[in-house]
Amino acid sequence: MRGMSPVVQVIARLLAGLLFLFGTYIVMHGHLTPGGGFAGGVLVAAAFILMSLAFGSVEHTERNSYTLSSVVESLGGVLFVCLALAGYVAVAYFFQNAATYGTGTPLKLISGGMILPANIAIGIKVGAGLFAVFLALGASRFVMKD
């Protein structure tokens, strides 16, 4: 994939950091404000996609980033299942909030118990997954040949 003009590259470099930050914010505050793991994860992925569109890449790095993102995606999935299982094992029910303090307090980040870690897991999974989809669709032909 070829890169784009320096103007785009500079702006993209500026924006990507912000996007990433904003994405992380939305992931973290999913239980307090609109948004959550999926919406934030999409933003995180958008940051990566923006970078790779702007700067381009060679097949070698694409392959690496594809492998990496699919591994991270799986890890996110595993993490999420583990969190859900934590409720199953520690309390009683699958998906039960294993570390809750009462019913939670509005606008307090860590009062949601397991919701925050779950959102983070989803954010990781969605971010990495979307980026992998992007690579698979747009970037190269190698993915299916693996």
């Binding site: 591994v71 799986s74 890890l75 595993v78 299942v81 299982l85 009683a92 699958f94």
Partner: peptide, 24 residues
Amino acid sequence: ARFVPLFVIIPLASAFLIPLFAKL
């Protein structure tokens, strides 16, 4: 009744684990 969700959990977890282990 605790066994019921296992029908979903086990294959779901393994669907995520298989790519990880297959890399190794």
